[in-house]
Amino acid sequence: MELLLALGIGLLVGCGVWLALASRTFPVILGLTLIGYAVNLLIFFGGRIGASAPPLALPGATGLADPLPQALVLTAIVIGFGMTAYFVALALKGIGESGVDAVDLPASRDDTGEEP
């Protein structure tokens, strides 16, 4: 089970890194999203792997589920979602302003410091 989860997380990160290294914005967004999913899974399983365990110490209960990673991952999901939305808006703004879909937009005159 651990191996399967680890391989799954590794596959997600691998695909995410591959996509994030692209020069166009859309694959980069997809790649960062995949990395975000993998990270969320990692935190989630950082507590422990298992099902049907109570989150509180009940009398007679055998295992315990750790509720903290669930709280952490909820925070991480919300933040990741907001960040992705912002990045999408920013990428659209970049395309609208420059006409080019690229993470590294072409430099304008201001940046090179040439005399006008």
Partner: peptide, 24 residues
């Protein structure tokens, strides 16, 4: 916008690394 795109992308990767570190 040009500066913002690279800044945001880089920091999103940084946040993911931070979370991996915290999870481990």
């Amino acid at each position: 916008t040009r500066a913002g795109l690279t800044y945001v992308a880089l920091n999103l990767v940084g946040s993911a690394l931070f979370l991996v570190g915290l999870g481990l």
